[in-house]
Each structure stands twice: as structure tokens, then as C-alpha cells.
Computed example of a mutant assay.
Amino acid sequence: MLLADEQYVVQWLSQYGALPRSQVTRMLKKPPGTAEKILKNLRRRGQIEDISGGYYVGLDPMCKPDQRTILAVWVLLRFFDQVGPLDHYPAVYPSQLFFLKEDIGYEIVVLYEGEHSQLRLLQPQEDLKYIIVLPHISMAEGLRLPRAPCLFATVEFQGRDEPEVKFYQEVNNEHIS
């Protein structure tokens, strides 16, 4: 029988595929040493595997990390103190991830260059907000937004393992952080 934290790790990896080790340890909300012990126990029991030399962890060695999902999880981590360990899961395309925060649903949509039209596929609902992750904030100018509250984000690694996540909102047709 797995402990609760171990069950969370297995659940997250079954939902999202392989994730960077640093994301999983942050999602556990434990001191780094404790989080590493949890991962080591799961690895020893054959529940998870190291991928790409241990940079990623997954349920099996053939798991392929999905970069859109990984970017969405970096954004989710900015809200993780206000989100329950199981109050997030994969969303319906073109969104990558859905989470609940204070009884409001958020969908994270990761767009790459030239993917402006994907926002037309969104199905806005009451009490649903979007976080649109862009490679750079200037890309927001050409977007046709859904009829729902939207927040923009960029995820900038700048040579680090853990990126800086910046949020922007639109005020008077200008994007401010």
C-alpha cells in the first residue's frame, strides 16, 4: 500500500506523463530531502522510473515528456499553495491543464508561435478563467480572445532548471505584469 504522497506522485505521472524531477518535488510540498526519499522509495518499488538520466521521472522508462504539459505545470506551481493535491488534471484540447482554486476553474492553454487560431476552439463556461501561456508577451497582441476572463503568462528559463513565470493582464489594450 502506497502512502498518500506516493499515491499523489503516481497519480500526477499517470495524468501528465513524465515530468521534471524538480516539478514533482515542488508539487509534494515537502523539504527537498523528504521529497527525494519519497521518489527513491517509489523507484525502489518499481512504481516510477528515471528518464533522461534522472532529469525526468515517469511511470515507465519509455515515457516521453510533453513540453506543453511541462510549461502548464510550471504555471500551476505558482498557485499550488491554494490548490489541493488532486484538484488539477489534464484539460480538453487545446488546453493542457485544468485546476480549481477557490471554487473557480482555470484552464491553462500553452500556445507556440503561429497557433493564434487554437483559441477559437475553447468553450468558455461560467466560472471559468483562462491562463494563456505564450513564448513572449508581444504575441498577445494578435490573439482573438475567448469571451471569458484571460490572464497571460510567460515561462522563461534563462539557463536555469526552474523557470521564472511572469503573469500579465490586459489594461487599456496594454499588457502589464
Results as ranks from 00 to 15, higher is better:
F98R: 15
L39M: 11
E36C: 01
E49R: 14
I104M: 13
N173S: 13
S14Y: 04
L111E: 05
S52I: 05
A153E: 02
A91E: 05
L39T: 08
C150D: 00
E162M: 07
L39P: 03
H136D: 12
G33D: 11
S22M: 10
I51P: 03
Y93L: 06
G17H: 03
L151F: 10
G58I: 04
K101E: 13
V9Q: 03
W12G: 01
P149Q: 11
V133L: 03
S117G: 05
V75G: 00
Q123M: 10
E170Y: 04
H175C: 03
T69H: 02
G114Y: 07
D81R: 14
L59V: 15
D66L: 02
I104N: 08
L134F: 03
E36S: 14
F79R: 14
R68D: 04
E141C: 04
T25N: 01
Y56P: 06
S52G: 03
F152P: 00
L111V: 08
F99M: 12
Q67I: 09
P61H: 12
S117F: 11
A35R: 05
G142Q: 07
T25Y: 01
D60N: 14
L19I: 08
A35E: 05
G114V: 09
E164C: 06
L19Q: 07
I51Q: 07
G46V: 11
F152S: 02
I38Y: 03
I108L: 06
P135R: 00
S52D: 15
E6A: 15
V110I: 12
E174N: 10
P146R: 09
T69S: 10
G84C: 09
V165A: 07
L122I: 10
V171S: 10
I38L: 11
Y56M: 10
D60P: 01
T154L: 00
G53Q: 09
Q125T: 12
H116I: 01
R120N: 12
E107F: 06
K101P: 02
L145V: 06
A148K: 06
F79K: 12
D50H: 09
E113G: 02
A4P: 07
F99Y: 14
P149Y: 10
Y93T: 08
L111I: 08
K29Q: 15
Y106C: 04
N41E: 14
F80Y: 14
L19T: 03
E6W: 08
L76W: 10
K40I: 07
F167P: 02
Y55W: 15
Q47V: 13
D87T: 05
M1F: 10
Q123S: 11
L59H: 05
P163A: 02
K40D: 13
L2R: 14
E36I: 11
D161L: 12
L77M: 15
D103T: 13
E115M: 06
I38W: 00
G105M: 08
H116M: 05
I131K: 00
L143M: 06
E102I: 08
Y130R: 04
I176L: 12
R43N: 10
P85H: 12
E6V: 08
Y8M: 13
L145D: 04
E49G: 02
L3V: 07
Q47P: 01
E162P: 00
G33Q: 12
A72H: 02
V133Y: 01
I51E: 03
P61N: 11
M1G: 15
R78E: 15
L3P: 01
K101C: 13
A18D: 01
